[in-house]
């Protein structure tokens, strides 16, 4: 009875403050203490992206609870966790795609090369050019395969193939062809579609569409690539190709990938972040260490399949 009263007063006092300050200001308040987390991960160099104190709400529902994480450059970071724990939500915070969801509310800071991307003056278009994304469900445009892949470069003015460009002799068709071919090859789709680049992309199979979306993202040449379960609709052979691709990409790019496949995460990632239900980041660290010797009992249970 007394406990409830205290909590009520606490709430009214801290009204307006974000929930993390509430829990932090009174460690061990009540019997339900905040579960322990292991998210300190030491690495060399500056982080490409850093997140601190990130809360995300959809309306009144909290999807992410006080997430802090630093993502090293030119590496693969895997996000794993049970369905609905907020992995996609987290990923969308990194290129501010959550802005597009009505009712979504983001609190906290996310930096890209040290600059806060949630500041007023940020150029969203520029940010998303540099932080690309492959969605959980394939979403090609109802255009030809070539137009899909070349969409980004064309819109960014990197290649010009319009009528005016042809007229003035500044036609970049060859360069565009190169980009299309390179991107499709990287996404392991080239051999299947090279003879029908002008066919509509909606005529491809689900897995092919997903690889096309990867190619479309690569064509823009982003620095960070966010991938939301890019291999969930692919057969083992295409999956293996995509995994190879991701490992290759990590030489020049920073890759953040959501996956439900533990083996995949263990195979391709350099560091792994484990989210658990309720939108908390429970453990983050070197992939080998997280999988072989997890600090948290809950993470161990999740990884060994005792708890989903």
């Amino acid at each position: 009875m007394t406990e409830t009263t205290t909590q009520d007063t606490d709430r009214s006092e801290t009204a307006g403050a974000s929930s993390d300050s509430q829990t932090r200001s009174q460690p061990g308040a009540g019997t339900e203490s905040t579960p322990e987390t292991w998210t300190d991960y030491e690495f060399e160099g500056e982080p490409k992206m850093a997140v601190s104190g990130l809360d995300v709400y959809y309306g009144d529902d909290q999807a992410l609870d006080d997430i802090s994480i630093e993502i090293p450059e030119k590496s693969v970071t895997a996000l794993i966790g049970p369905s609905g724990c907020g992995k996609s939500t987290f990923l969308r915070c990194l290129n501010r795609m959550n802005d597009r969801i009505r009712g979504a509310n983001v609190d906290g800071t996310v930096t890209f090369e040290g600059k806060n991307i949630y500041q007023e003056a940020l150029d969203l278009v520029e940010l998303r050019k540099r932080v690309g994304m492959v969605f959980q469900a394939p979403n090609p445009f109802p255009k030809s395969i070539r137009d899909n892949v070349a969409y980004g470069p064309r819109k960014h003015g990197k290649v010009r193939t319009d009528f005016l460009a042809k007229l003035t002799g500044r036609d970049d068709s060859e360069r565009e062809d190169e980009i299309v071919e390179r991107s499709l090859k990287q996404a392991a789709l080239w051999d299947e579609v090279k003879d029908r680049l002008d066919d509509n992309a909606l005529g491809l199979s689900g897995g092919q569409q997903q690889r096309l979306c990867i190619a479309r993202c690569l064509a823009v040449d982003p620095e960070v690539i966010l991938m939301d379960e890019p291999a969930s609709a692919l057969d083992p052979i295409a999956t293996a190709k995509i995994e190879d691709l991701i490992e290759d990409l990590a030489e020049d790019y920073t890759v953040v990938i959501v996956t439900h496949n533990m083996q995949q995460a263990a195979r391709i990632s350099d560091q792994t972040a484990v989210f658990l239900t309720g939108g908390e980041l429970v453990e983050y660290g070197d992939t080998d260490q997280v999988f072989e010797d997890p600090q948290s009992q809950r993470v161990e249970d999740y990884i060994t399949g005792k708890f989903g």
Binding site: M97, R100, L127, G132, F135, G152, C213
Partner: peptide, 11 residues
């Protein structure tokens, strides 16, 4: 989805 895809490409 089309709008999201385009926005995510920095368009």
């Amino acid at each position: 989805e089309y709008r999201d895809a385009s926005a995510a490409l920095g368009v």
